[in-house]
Design a protein around this nucleic acid. Structure first.
Lengths: 173, 173
DNA sequence: CGAAAGAGTTCCTTCAGGGAACTCGCCAGG
DNA sequence: CCTGGCGAGTTCCCTGAAGGAACTCTTTCG
């Protein structure tokens, strides 16, 4: 197999995917942020092979997304805690969850609700502009090469959507 | 290998991850939403094995995230287009991109900018509450079982963060 | 003392991913 | 009419990561 290493590619999605794009990392982060943070707890909750869990956790620690900390001597007990970098993956989890809720919730409705303490309501995540707070959609955004963008093969980062659509003659632009 | 099937688990993150949690799907969606939508274009841009690309595209079509459409007879030419379900993965891509920008952009800055047409500024995505528009963070959200939530092993969906934190005696709550 | 929990290791098997070559329909040029 | 080339996949072989279950160590509990 030997997953193609994407970390060298000048695309932030590729870089994030290089870490996050496997079957378990998202679920591990969900659990750790949720308070399931010990090795055996994780192994049981996820049903993941202990070997693979070892490898994943090591990778996440190496990347600075988690820290392994001994929270108790005698008997020695470890737990994995999210760093700031790890906590900032929360929007990714919320986005995945919103999408899953929207498209895979059965008749019974989504399996969980997010409760927003600030407004005291159950809610869902929307992608918002950091400046104006308005929604961010494929229709109202374009992409331009950034300062660190070396243009070349594999360098695309959600390119000019509108431009592409316009070229194709899409009517809804 | 044989990835553990997560689609049966009552967790929207797991369901989304079942589709999205591999090395290539995010990049494929990025490209398709960007206008790179033909088989060979994708293969070249991504550097993905053609075999794997075939399998991925078939899966995405099967899931209703993409549609394969013939945009030209004689000679027959196909392209892959995002459905509504596919377009709604945009927030996931933006979240991954924001995170990657924040933590992996070199000194030169991020490789691309998102331009928000509504406010005419380059911007980044923030996770916002669908009701009040306020930010959604691990600190100001809790999770409760939803209507479709059958509690049991593997059912957790970003559980009660605050509760977990409080139990552990974290000071910052 | 024996059992049990926490945290991993080790070993074996299997199958998905990488890579490169091969196919097939259709058109363009000499 | 034959050759070349593009688009869109297939086919084949090889490697190595994921699964799964058993094994190891340490430390505490009854």
């Amino acid at each position: 197999m030997t997953r193609t290493p994407l970390s060298g590619v000048a695309c932030s999605i590729a870089r994030a995917t290089d870490l996050f794009g496997d079957a378990w990392t998202a679920l591990i982060m969900r659990d750790v942020l949720t308070g399931i943070d010990r090795f055996d707890e994780l192994a049981q909750d996820l049903g993941i092979s202990r070997k693979v869990l070892t490898v994943r956790l090591a990778r996440l620690v190496e990347e600075g997304v988690l820290v392994r900390e001994r929270y108790q001597e005698r008997p020695p007990r470890e737990r994995y805690a999210a760093t700031e970098k790890g906590e900032e993956l929360y929007p990714v989890l919320l986005a995945l969850m919103s999408w899953g809720d929207r498209w895979y919730a059965g008749e019974a409705g989504p399996p969980a609700r997010i409760h927003h303490l600030d407004c005291a309501r159950d809610t869902t995540m929307v992608a918002a502009c950091a400046h104006c707070g308005g929604p961010l959609t494929p229709e109202n955004t374009t992409q331009l090469p950034g300062p660190g963008g070396r243009i070349g093969p594999g360098t695309r980062v959600l390119g000019p959507l509108l431009a592409a659509r316009t070229e194709r003659g899409d009517p809804d632009v």
